[in-house]
């Protein structure tokens, strides 16, 4: 899973497979972090964008 794991080898399979996976996980992670930080920011600013949920 990580390069420091016993099973890890620096070969094509690991780079491609784990690379793709970590790429996806990073997008998810960064996306969520962005949403949370922006939500905290919006909350503190008291921003009101209306009740979008009700359309």
């Amino acid at each position: 899973m990580f390069p420091f794991n016993f099973e890890w080898i620096w070969d094509m399979s690991h780079v491609v497979f784990m690379g793709g996976l970590w790429y996806a996980l990073n997008i998810i992670g960064i996306g969520m972090t962005f949403c949370i930080i922006k939500a905290i920011y919006d909350t503190v600013k008291g921003k009101d964008d209306g009740h979008h949920a009700e359309h």
Binding site: K38, I40, D42, T43, D49, H52
Partner: peptide, 14 residues
């Protein structure tokens, strides 16, 4: 809850 409100709004955004 404003935080939740904003969070869901932002998540919708992306």
């Amino acid at each position: 809850v404003p935080f939740f409100h904003h969070l869901s709004h932002n998540m919708h955004g992306i």
